[in-house]
Design a protein around this nucleic acid. Sequence first.
DNA 1: TGCCAGGATATTGGATACAATTTATCACCC
DNA 2: GGGTGATAAATTGTATCCAATATCCTGGCA
Lengths: 229, 229
Amino acid sequence: MAVNEGLSRLVARAQPRHRTTAEFVEATLREAILTGVIAPGTPLRQEDLAETFGVSRMPVREALRQLEARALAEFHPHRGAVVAEISAADGADIGAIRMALEPMALRLSLPALTAADLDQAEELIAEMDGEADPGRMGELNRRFHMTLYARAGRPRLLALTEQHLLAADRYLRFQFAALGYRPRSQDEHRALLAACRAGDADEACRLVTEHVGQAAEQLTAFLEGREAG
Amino acid sequence: MAVNEGLSRLVARAQPRHRTTAEFVEATLREAILTGVIAPGTPLRQEDLAETFGVSRMPVREALRQLEARALAEFHPHRGAVVAEISAADGADIGAIRMALEPMALRLSLPALTAADLDQAEELIAEMDGEADPGRMGELNRRFHMTLYARAGRPRLLALTEQHLLAADRYLRFQFAALGYRPRSQDEHRALLAACRAGDADEACRLVTEHVGQAAEQLTAFLEGREAG
DNA sequence: TGCCAGGATATTGGATACAATTTATCACCC
DNA sequence: GGGTGATAAATTGTATCCAATATCCTGGCA
C-alpha cells in the first residue's frame, strides 16, 4: 500500500531517465520533499517506498542516505527516517547561509555576465510579474537568481547555493500553504538586475543580501508565530 | 585482500562506537580521505572495502553514497566510486565558500562569545605555535576557527563551515606532502583573536576574510603550478 | 599498419530471503 | 502508580544470486 497518494502520482509521472535506480528514487523523493508533496515529519518507511517505486529496498536505502546528507531527511537508528522537520531556527539557518553564499556567487559571476544572461534574467522577472502559481513562481525565482550567479565558475559554490535556494523555497511553499499565496512585487529583483547591468558589484551584493535577508526575516516571523501559538 | 594498507590500520584502530555499521564505515572512510590516507583518484571497490571493514557490501554502499553527497567520492555508474580528485579549480571553489561562510559565522557568533571561548582560542594559538606535525596543526587550526564560530547558534551553517574547513585541510595536507611542511606564523590568528576580544565585528570579519583568502590563494598557486607542469 | 566490431571479463547495480538488533509498547506485578 | 519484562514491529545487516554495463582485448578487414 502506498504511504502517500501525492508521491505515487509523482512516481507515475516521473521519467526514470536516470543512470541508476537509486538516483531515480533520490531525485523523485527530493522533489517530493522540496515541493511539499510529502509533509515534514512524514515517516519514510523503506518497505513502503520500495513498493511505491516498484523497486527493492536497496536503492531506497541509498537514496535515503543521500537525502540525509542533504538535510532533507532525518535518521533515527533502528526507527527509520522521517522527512526533515520545518522550524524557525532552521529557516533562519538557511537564510543565513544564503546571505553568505549568494553575494559571493554574484560578485564572482557579475564581471562575466553576458548581455544574453541579463536579458534572460529580465525575461524571468517579466514572467514572475503576475504569476499566480506559487510553485511556478518559486522555480522562476530560483532560475532568476541562478542566472545571475551562473558565470561564477565555481561549481561547488553554485551547487550549494542552489541547494539552499531550494531549501528556502520549501519553506516558502510551506508558508503559502498556511497563509495563502500572495505574489510579491518584482521591484527588488528589478533593482538588483539594474545594478548588475551597471556592473556595480558592491551595490548588487548589497541588494541581494538585503533581498535575501528580508525574505528570511518575513519567513522567520511567520514560523516563530506558528511555533509560539 | 585489503586495497590499502593505511586504511586497514585505520579500521583496526577505529572504535566502532557508531550507531550503525554504515555510519562507522562512512566516518572511517571520510577520515581516511580527509587525512590523505587514501589518495585522490583511488578506486573505492565495494568488495574490497567490505572485506577490509569486515562487513557486507550494503553498509559500504550506503557509506559511499554519503561520501558522494559530501563531494568526497565521485561515482561513475557501473564503474564504481573513486576518491575525489584534487584540482586547482576545486581548491579555489572551497576557498570561495569558506570566504563566504566564515565571516557570516563569525559575525553571528562574536556577540555571544564568552571569555572562556576566547581563552580557549588563545590556548589553541599557543599550541599551534611551534607545532611540528602538520596533521595536528590542521586539527588545531580547525578547532581555533570553530571555537570562534561556535556561538553562532546556526547548526547548519556551522556544519557546512566545518565541512569546508576539513576539505581545505585535505588540500593543505596534500600540499605539505608535496612541498614539505613549513609552519605558518600565528600573527594572523592573534590579530583575529584581538579583534574578537575587542568586539570589533567588522574588523574581525575583514581579518578572517583576508586570512582565508590568502590561504586559498597560496594553495591555488601551488596547485596551478602543479597542473601546468 | 591502422581501425572498427564484437565478445570476454570484471565490477557494479539490484532483488530476495533471512537473521540480528533495537526500539517502543503494553500488560503485569509489586 | 511506577518499574519491569515480554512482545511486536521496524530497521539494520548478511548472504547469495542474477542482470546490466563499462572496459579491455582480440581478430578481422580495409
